[in-house]
Protein backbone atom coordinates (compact mmCIF):
# COMPACT_ATOMS: atom_id res chain seq x y z
CA UNK A 1 0.00 0.00 0.00
CA UNK A 2 2.85 2.34 0.91
CA UNK A 3 4.64 1.50 -2.35
CA UNK A 4 1.47 2.21 -4.32
CA UNK A 5 1.27 5.60 -2.60
CA UNK A 6 4.86 6.34 -3.58
CA UNK A 7 4.15 5.43 -7.19
CA UNK A 8 1.09 7.69 -7.26
CA UNK A 9 3.12 10.48 -5.62
CA UNK A 10 5.56 10.48 -8.55
CA UNK A 11 2.68 11.63 -10.76
CA UNK A 12 1.79 14.61 -8.57
CA UNK A 13 4.97 16.63 -9.11
CA UNK A 14 6.70 17.37 -12.41
CA UNK A 15 10.11 15.96 -13.31
CA UNK A 16 13.09 18.26 -13.42
CA UNK A 17 13.79 18.95 -17.10
CA UNK A 18 16.08 21.80 -18.04
CA UNK A 19 15.84 24.18 -20.98
CA UNK A 20 18.98 22.73 -22.59
CA UNK A 21 19.39 20.87 -25.86
CA UNK A 22 19.04 17.50 -24.11
CA UNK A 23 15.35 18.21 -23.47
CA UNK A 24 14.79 17.92 -27.24
CA UNK A 25 15.59 14.22 -26.97
CA UNK A 26 12.11 13.72 -25.50
CA UNK A 27 10.76 13.95 -29.04
CA UNK A 28 12.15 10.52 -29.95
CA UNK A 29 9.96 8.33 -27.68
CA UNK A 30 6.98 10.26 -29.05
CA UNK A 31 8.06 9.57 -32.62
CA UNK A 32 8.32 5.88 -31.70
CA UNK A 33 4.73 5.94 -30.43
CA UNK A 34 3.51 7.66 -33.59
CA UNK A 35 5.36 5.13 -35.77
CA UNK A 36 3.96 2.13 -33.87
CA UNK A 37 0.35 3.36 -33.88
CA UNK A 38 0.47 4.45 -37.51
CA UNK A 39 1.76 1.05 -38.60
CA UNK A 40 -0.70 -0.77 -36.31
CA UNK A 41 -3.62 0.97 -37.99
CA UNK A 42 -2.17 0.84 -41.50
CA UNK A 43 -1.02 -2.75 -42.10
CA UNK A 44 -3.66 -5.20 -43.23
CA UNK A 45 -2.43 -8.19 -41.26
CA UNK A 46 0.11 -7.99 -38.43
CA UNK A 47 3.10 -10.29 -38.70
CA UNK A 48 5.27 -9.38 -35.75
CA UNK A 49 8.69 -9.56 -37.45
CA UNK A 50 7.52 -7.61 -40.48
CA UNK A 51 5.62 -5.16 -38.30
CA UNK A 52 8.75 -4.51 -36.22
CA UNK A 53 10.87 -3.95 -39.34
CA UNK A 54 8.38 -1.57 -40.96
CA UNK A 55 7.91 0.36 -37.72
CA UNK A 56 11.68 0.68 -37.31
CA UNK A 57 12.03 2.01 -40.86
CA UNK A 58 9.23 4.54 -40.28
CA UNK A 59 10.72 5.57 -36.93
CA UNK A 60 14.15 6.15 -38.49
CA UNK A 61 12.56 8.13 -41.34
CA UNK A 62 10.66 10.32 -38.88
CA UNK A 63 13.82 10.87 -36.82
CA UNK A 64 15.83 11.92 -39.87
CA UNK A 65 13.10 14.25 -41.14
CA UNK A 66 12.60 15.85 -37.73
CA UNK A 67 16.34 16.32 -37.30
CA UNK A 68 16.60 17.94 -40.75
CA UNK A 69 13.67 20.28 -39.97
CA UNK A 70 15.27 21.21 -36.64
CA UNK A 71 18.61 21.89 -38.36
CA UNK A 72 16.90 24.03 -41.02
CA UNK A 73 15.00 26.04 -38.41
CA UNK A 74 18.16 26.47 -36.36
CA UNK A 75 20.03 27.66 -39.45
CA UNK A 76 17.19 30.07 -40.27
CA UNK A 77 17.29 31.55 -36.78
CA UNK A 78 21.08 31.82 -36.91
CA UNK A 79 20.94 33.66 -40.26
CA UNK A 80 18.17 36.06 -39.13
CA UNK A 81 19.66 36.89 -35.75
CA UNK A 82 23.21 37.07 -37.06
Amino acid sequence: MCEFGLIVATFTSPENIGMDVKSLLWVFPLLASVAVIYKATKVRVIFLRRFFTETLVLFCTLCIVMTLIAALLHAGVWIITG
Binding site: F11, S13, I17, W26, S33, I37, T41, I46, F51
Partner: peptide, 21 residues
Amino acid sequence: RAVIIFVTITLTFITGLYIGS
Protein backbone atom coordinates in the same frame (compact mmCIF):
# COMPACT_ATOMS: atom_id res chain seq x y z
CA ARG B 1 -3.37 -4.91 -32.96
CA ALA B 2 -5.35 -4.36 -29.75
CA VAL B 3 -2.41 -5.23 -27.50
CA ILE B 4 0.00 -3.04 -29.50
CA ILE B 5 -2.40 -0.09 -29.39
CA PHE B 6 -3.18 -0.50 -25.69
CA VAL B 7 0.45 -0.73 -24.62
CA THR B 8 1.67 2.12 -26.83
CA ILE B 9 -1.07 4.64 -26.06
CA THR B 10 -1.12 3.86 -22.33
CA LEU B 11 2.66 4.14 -22.08
CA THR B 12 2.68 7.42 -24.00
CA PHE B 13 -0.05 8.90 -21.82
CA ILE B 14 1.52 7.71 -18.55
CA THR B 15 4.92 9.04 -19.66
CA GLY B 16 3.30 12.45 -20.20
CA LEU B 17 1.75 12.36 -16.74
CA TYR B 18 5.05 11.23 -15.20
CA ILE B 19 7.01 14.06 -16.83
CA GLY B 20 4.57 16.90 -16.23
CA SER B 21 2.47 15.49 -13.33
